[in-house]
């Protein structure tokens, strides 16, 4: 992923993340690739999930440094919807079972 953004502080997940979200059985995962610009990935995360920039950048950096980031845990239908939205922007996103 081409580096175009400044370093930002990591986002801290709040405990307010709902139990139903954690219990949901499917993960929306974004994978690293060398072609999507970091700024673009951040922008897409903001657009698709409605996240603030700091949270979107945290996940973008996780993709870049760790090879992937789990973006959300959801039920099948909603997770499929998110994967489709991300793929519309040609991000490398997939749906995985939460083991």
């Amino acid at each position: 992923m081409p580096d175009t953004t400044p370093v930002v502080l990591p986002d801290i997940e709040t405990e307010a993340e709902s139990r139903s979200e954690l219990d949901a059985g499917y993960l929306v995962v974004c994978w690293d690739d060398p072609i999507n610009y970091m700024d673009f990935v951040t922008h897409v995360f903001q657009q698709v999930f409605g996240w603030p920039r700091q949270k979107a950048e945290f996940h973008m950096r996780q993709v870049h440094h760790e090879g992937r980031s789990i973006l959300v845990r959801e039920g099948l239908e909603k997770a499929e919807f998110y994967v489709h939205q991300l793929q519309k922007f040609t991000l490398h996103a997939t749906l995985e079972r939460d083991s």
Partner: peptide
């Protein structure tokens, strides 16, 4: 410019209905 059916729904086997879900994704894209 991206070829059709380039995007994969999942890297792993999710359920017996995977092909159907992949087809729905392909159709939507």
């Amino acid at each position: 410019a991206v070829p059709e059916a380039h995007q994969q729904l999942s890297r792993s086997r999710l359920s017996p209905n995977d092909d159907e879900h992949q087809q729905l994704l392909d159709e939507a894209l």
